[in-house]
């Protein structure tokens, strides 16, 4: 049973939403979180990676050292925070990693690519619900040099691979003009090892597909046209990405983990303060932002639904 409190809530006290660098220090320092959807999402991820490797995985050849750092960070994270679910045994440079949930054991020599069937990032990504993005830092910029991405919010890893930070974000309205992109880039490049950060991003989704890739938009995007005031509670989902940022000390790369959570609007609004605040935010949301978030086609219907629900309280 999913309670509404299982959804990470993305809004602060303000009822007006705007783009900002809303990153906060991540005190628990855990890159990975497991939810009760773990096994379903892991198997969906693996299915997507098998069927659509070009869409879901990309890496530049020079990322191998950073990929191993990610394996180290994530496995340590898993055995530290979930010791009853994951185990690691180290013997003479040999690592034996056990996932007790999937009942799998992997044995490999740390740092030796030939001892894994797939690349290190691809390997460890198949054990976590998060999408994993590696940004390498060079020439005063961050470059998307590797990633395993199965649950994107309407963007393409294939297309964005090897882009710098500004190129990746150029489709976001207003992002270029107000220097926000520069400030966020400068902030990211100053992230230090051992001091991870976290931010949350939100959107609405007509339907409940986690794999809302740009490549399949013509399939899942159709649901936007079916939203009515009557079905919005069931059909429309509130989507939150918990994004965490870790400096990799040896390669100086940045690991960016994205955990996508979803909850139907009817469950989301069971908590009245959330209903009230989200209604206020959606009503005041600037057009450029709701266009970019892909809400334009059904924003009115959702507002009507939320308003009707508010009257019932």
């Amino acid at each position: 049973m999913i309670s509404h409190f299982s959804l990470p809530y993305p809004f602060s006290d303000s009822n007006v939403y705007k783009y900002s660098n809303n990153a906060a220090l991540l005190h628990t320092k855990n890159a990975i979180e497991l939810t009760d959807r773990y096994l379903d999402e892991i198997s969906l991820k693996r299915e997507l990676l098998t069927k659509h490797p070009e869409r879901c995985y990309h890496s530049s050849p020079h990322t191998m050292a950073a990929q191993w750092e990610i394996v180290d960070l994530i496995i340590n994270n898993l055995v530290t925070y979930y010791p009853d679910k994951f185990e690691l045994e180290k013997k003479d440079g040999q690592w034996i990693f056990s996932n007790l949930l999937t009942k799998e054991t992997a044995s490999f020599k740390f740092g030796d690519r030939t001892t894994l069937e797939i690349e290190p990032l691809d390997f460890i990504g198949r054990h976590v619900q998060e999408d994993l993005i590696l940004m390498m830092q060079r020439d005063g910029d961050l470059i998307l040099d590797a990633g395993q991405l199965c649950f994107p919010a309407n963007w393409s890893l294939y297309f964005n691979s090897e882009m710098n930070f500004k190129e990746i974000h150029s489709p976001i309205p207003g992002f270029q003009s107000d220097f926000l992109v520069d400030r966020i880039l400068q902030f990211l490049m100053r992230i230090e090892a051992g001091t991870p950060w976290e931010r949350k991003n939100w959107s609405l989704m007509a339907g409940s597909r986690l794999d809302s890739s740009l490549e399949t938009f013509s399939e899942w995007g159709q649901a936007r046209k079916r939203v009515t005031k009557e079905n919005a509670g069931e059909l429309v989902h509130f989507r939150v990405e918990v994004q965490k940022l870790f400096r990799l000390p040896k390669s100086n790369g940045i690991l960016f983990t994205i955990h996508s959570h979803m909850l139907s609007l009817e469950k989301f609004i069971q908590h009245t303060p959330w209903l009230e605040q989200f209604y206020a935010i959606l009503r005041e949301l600037p057009k450029a932002i709701y266009d970019y978030k892909g809400i334009s086609l059904y924003r009115e219907q959702v507002l009507d639904y939320l308003e009707a629900e508010l009257k019932k309280r």
Partner: peptide, 9 residues
């Protein structure tokens, strides 16, 4: 057609 450009591609 968009203005989103990839130097890789």
């Amino acid at each position: 057609v968009s203005s989103h450009y990839s130097r890789r591609l």
